[in-house]
Amino acid sequence: MDTDARHTERDRSSAPEDGTEEGSRSARAPAPEAGRTAWGRVALLGALCTVALLLFSAFVLQPFLIPSGSMEPTLRVGDRVLVNKLAYRFGSEPRRGDVVVFDGTGSFVPETPGDDSLGSLLRGVAASLGLGEPVETDFVKRVVGVGGDHVVCCDERGRIEVNGDPVDEEYVHPGDKPSQVAFDIEVPDGRLWMMGDHRSRSRDSRDHLGQPGGGMVPLDRVVGRVDWLGWPFGRLGSLDGTDAFTGIASAGIRPAGADRG
């Protein structure tokens, strides 16, 4: 009996009287279910943020990575610009001199079946967030002619004429001619004549004359207007406008006594 009593006392002394130590150990060890719940909340928050960014990019302001030098010196390779998708949403239309992003399907590139693969989807998401190069059908150029305009290259001083008026294009890359390719075109209503600022390195409307669409971009293919530079920080700010087309006659109308320069 003494032996039983000693065992009983030893067992009682080894356990805390109020169970505090055992309870604290249980409290310190996180339950597996709680960890999974926390990670689930983080994943849900990340998914919601991504969806919000994609919606904002789709309808309001889209980052766009400049992949080539066709718009130098205005835009440089690696620049990230912000495309204002509301610029032409409420009845406004692109104007001469605007720098715009557009879908060149049917005008700059032929119609092809869409790629619905996962890789294509991920590339599209990265492009829409400005994290990757744009899809092959997206381009950035400057509007030189709008619907009804008569655009000609070139006058006796080598300048492009719009509706009979010469255009002094200060934004053209230094050393480039306004165009080394002669053309004389009428822009159909609802379409745009696009040209890059680095004329010797830009494949634009001039390169698609004679092809289906004639290089003219439909208004409904315009994604938005480039209004701001978002990267690099040294060039952060709004995109400079141009007054090169100020005073150009409206399509089919020429002011009386206007000087052709």
Rank of each mutant, 00 (worst) to 15 (best):
D98H: 01
P73Q: 12
D115R: 08
S70E: 01
R206A: 01
G46L: 11
R123K: 15
S179I: 03
D79W: 07
C154W: 02
P166W: 00
A244H: 03
E136N: 09
G19V: 04
P73I: 13
P166Y: 04
A182P: 04
S120W: 15
V125W: 12
P166F: 02
L192R: 00
V151A: 00
R206V: 11
F102Q: 01
E93G: 03
W39T: 12
L48Y: 03
A29P: 00
H150K: 07
G261P: 10
S92L: 12
R206F: 11
F64A: 06
L229S: 02
F59W: 13
A15S: 09
P113V: 07
V109S: 04
P134K: 02
S14F: 06
L86M: 14
A43H: 09
P32S: 15
F245E: 05
E161W: 09
V60G: 01
R36G: 10
S120T: 13
C49Q: 11
L61Y: 13
V146L: 06
A31G: 06
V42C: 05
I66D: 01
L48A: 15
G19N: 05
F90W: 13
T74Y: 06
W228Q: 14
A47I: 08
T105P: 03
E136V: 10
W39R: 14
H150C: 08
G46F: 09
G19M: 04
S202E: 04
R235I: 07
T3F: 08
L192P: 01
R6V: 14
V223R: 00
V51L: 15
S202Y: 03
G40E: 06
E169P: 02
F139R: 02
T137F: 12
A52W: 12
A256G: 14
R159E: 00
A43M: 07
T137P: 02
V135E: 15
E21D: 12
P67D: 08
R10L: 15
R159T: 04
V101F: 00
L209W: 12
E21C: 10
E133K: 14
H150G: 01
V140S: 01
G196K: 00
R260G: 06
S92W: 08
V125H: 05
F56I: 10
T105K: 06
Q180V: 14
E33Q: 13
M1Q: 03
M216V: 06
G213F: 02
L61T: 09
G237F: 04
T50F: 11
T246L: 15
V42W: 13
G237S: 09
D165P: 02
A27L: 13
V187K: 01
G237A: 09
G147I: 05
T105G: 07
L131V: 04
P63C: 05
A182S: 14
C154P: 03
R89Q: 15
G164E: 03
L48W: 03
G119E: 14
L229M: 12
F108M: 07
R235C: 08
R12Y: 04
A27Q: 05
P166S: 09
D165V: 10
S200M: 12
P166T: 10
L121K: 15
S26E: 15
F139Q: 01
S26T: 13
G114K: 15
G147D: 05
S120L: 06
S179G: 02
P232L: 10
Y171N: 07
D220A: 05
V162Y: 01
F56T: 07
A256W: 07
G35V: 11
